[in-house]
């Protein structure tokens, strides 16, 4: 993709950045408003796909040196282990807990164990989408 116009690059950078920020917002909003791990993950993935589309694969690989298979693995591990935590206190597997805390700067904030669980889902969705798309794209046979 050597002949991609420069305007596309500039626009992509800005738009992808906005989408990324928005996806993180959606991810955190998930517990109380539309959003969550699935939606946030898909949004992040589409931002990254946009980057891959406008730049070439090698450039992005240099910037984001992730192996997405590991991202999936990490997500699965995180989601599985969150559920185990409650078992140490005699609760059934995947029992989630929440509590309100007074945090500096943020004020009263709700912290839940559902958040790391959702983060696991987020990671799996991002990893899955990009892994599939990149694997097909990189196939040169």
């Amino acid at each position: 993709m050597k002949n991609t116009p420069i305007q596309l690059h500039v626009v992509t950078r800005i738009v992808a950045f906005i989408i990324l920020i928005f996806s993180i917002f959606l991810f955190f909003a998930g517990h109380n408003n539309p959003g969550g791990g699935f939606i946030g993950g898909l949004m992040t993935a589409s931002a990254l796909v946009l980057l891959y589309l406008s730049f070439d694969l090698k450039t992005i690989k240099r910037v984001l040196p992730f192996d997405y298979a590991y991202v999936i693995g990490a997500g699965l591990l995180l989601a599985t282990l969150t559920g185990v935590a409650g078992m140490f206190f005699g609760f059934p597997y995947l029992t989630q807990f929440f509590e309100y805390f007074q945090l500096p700067i943020l004020g009263e904030t709700e912290l839940t164990t559902a958040l790391p669980f959702d983060l696991g889902i987020y990671l799996v969705v991002v990893g899955f989408t990009l892994l599939v798309i990149l694997t097909v794209a990189e196939d040169d046979s």
Partner: peptide, 15 residues
């Protein structure tokens, strides 16, 4: 989401 996964797999299989 599951449908997304399955469709992706079918596409790759077709490919």
């Amino acid at each position: 989401v599951i449908g997304f996964g399955i469709t992706a797999f079918m596409l790759v299989l077709a490919y």
